[in-house]
Design a protein around this nucleic acid. Sequence first.
DNA 1: TTGTGTTGTAACTATCTTTGTTACAATTAG
DNA 2: CTAATTGTAACAAAGATAGTTACAACACAA
Lengths: 146, 146
Amino acid sequence: MQISSRLTIAVHILDCIDTFKDSYKLTSDFLAGSVNVNPVIIRRILQQLKAAGIVNVARGSGGAEIAKPLDKITLLDIYNAVECIDNGELFHFHENPNPNCPVGRNIHNALDKKLELVQKAMEEEMKSITLAEIISDTQKLIREEN
Amino acid sequence: MQISSRLTIAVHILDCIDTFKDSYKLTSDFLAGSVNVNPVIIRRILQQLKAAGIVNVARGSGGAEIAKPLDKITLLDIYNAVECIDNGELFHFHENPNPNCPVGRNIHNALDKKLELVQKAMEEEMKSITLAEIISDTQKLIREEN
DNA sequence: TTGTGTTGTAACTATCTTTGTTACAATTAG
DNA sequence: CTAATTGTAACAAAGATAGTTACAACACAA
């Protein structure tokens, strides 16, 4: 199973907000135009980012802005904001190993530690990547188009 | 979205095969008893492990065995065997960013590199964990029960 | 060679998540 | 007040997971 596109959409949204903050009002409609999805999808993700303190959204008047310095927002922050991870666990352990089997009643303990290492490795890498980097890379690519 | 329980079930199966290889015939029924799922689930996962060269399954006579040394089988091998990853990509990128928007037409390039780093970090960690380790940890836990 | 146990696999179902959609009350600015 | 916009409910479609029954193909032993 893949990690949902909410993560890439969220990054896209944030990239747009920063890039166009001086030229356009950043409404869900405007952002939906760039991402190419229904505005409600954008609003839902903006709500998740807002709950995580990453953006502010102006109800009524409209428009979104980024609430923190770009280099203080990591890919992990965005991931945690939009991905609904069950107890924060990346791996889904099968529910009822047989407690009457020696392996069945110990596999959870033995394997959990390893799975935590894997999840940790992934999260550490995500933590090392900032929104500032991503946006700066995007803008470099835009400049190189000309 | 979580990674499916096929991974933990597969490890459980392999752990059982090694632990009980001298005492029992390792049929899908026997394994289903320890994992506590329907035997067909076991057979399906055994087929995936077989396709990856990790186990041999005896049609007709029945029983499964591990096809390689335990320290030559990594968690990544098992993960790749049972997890159906679309083009091998962990992250699902939203399909149609607007090519008429500067951000829309460059976000893919800018973000893909970062996502690859994250996936790589996860896979490297998985590659460093062997089935030998996991089984040895399980058997240590079993011994400590007494 | 016949019977028994087992695998390989198809077919179907239920449930969950994602993604997309319409609709509309609540809110804000002009 | 009006117009634009957000926040959110309600629903539907599509896809994946997980579970089940059923059965042909197969291997071995008596």
